[in-house]
């Protein structure tokens, strides 16, 4: 049984390999300076292109009749914190005519450009709209020419891009005893702090460890939660 199990996943071999080679050949011929790399891993072809030309490359791949990559399966980004360029923007293309698949990569971002920009592919496939908005929201990469570049998953006034590797998993919190961003509306945020929609406009109510006393009126029951905050 052991030899059968180490065979390298034959059942997942994509039938696209002949078309993948054709795709690389086509791109190398059409965009000779812009194809930086083409490699294959576990049966999947990855082509790295120059980020400034990604829209033209995608349009050519869509319009070429032999390849006809008319379906954008996925657009995502990966943050390689220690690497320069920092971000990989990854496009997964599928052709519904030939069932060919290919992965395109555009590498952007370095020390000088913390919020790098690259052209949008929504003119090629309208379905790329929300994928690019999600990348903008979670990574901070901008897409030039995007029809509606706003946050999609986080609240509109969120500060920071959560999926970056230097953003902590538990978020950027204010120090205890705050449990969520209880900063007064007319105060400026402390440097480096995230902001949530939980803001307060009540000056007396911002909890500090010294002003938490239970409410002394008789119709409210004794506050057993008072001690929870003064940890």
């Amino acid at each position: 049984m052991a030899d059968e199990q180490r065979m390298g996943a034959p059942e997942l071999a994509t039938p696209s390999n002949p078309l993948a080679a054709a795709t690389v050949a086509f791109l190398r011929e059409r965009f000779p300076d812009d194809v930086l790399d083409a490699s294959e891993y576990r049966g999947e072809m990855t082509i790295t292109v120059r980020p400034e030309r990604i829209a033209e490359v995608c349009r050519a791949l869509r319009d070429e009749p032999r390849l006809a990559y008319n379906y954008i399966a996925d657009i995502t980004a990966v943050d390689w914190l220690e690497r320069d360029p920092r971000y990989d923007v990854v496009y997964h293309l599928l052709s519904l005519a030939t069932y060919g698949v290919v992965r395109l990569k555009a590498q952007v971002g370095d020390e000088d450009t913390p919020d790098p920009e690259l052209p949008t592919v929504t003119t090629v496939w309208p379905g790329a709209d929300w994928f690019e908005r999600e990348i903008y929201d979670l990574f901070g990469l901008r897409f030039a020419g995007h029809p509606n570049q706003t946050r999609i998953l986080m609240p509109e006034d969120w500060v920071g891009h959560p999926l970056r590797k230097d953003y902590p998993l538990t978020g950027i919190h204010l120090p205890e005893p705050h449990w969520g961003g209880q900063v007064l509306l007319d105060e400026s945020l402390p440097a480096g702090m995230g902001r949530q929609t939980l803001r307060t406009n009540d000056r007396t109510g911002v909890p500090r460890s010294d002003n938490l006393t239970p409410d002394a009126s008789e119709d409210t029951p004794p506050d057993t939660h008072a001690n929870d905050h003064a940890r």
Binding site: W179, G180, Q182, T197, L198, R199, T200, N201, D202, T204, G205, V206, P207, L212, D215, T220, P221, D223, T224, H225, A226, H229
Partner: peptide, 13 residues
Amino acid sequence: PPDPLKVTGVTYI
């Protein structure tokens, strides 16, 4: 139990 927003004084925008 008491209203957590009254205890912490937060109002939601």
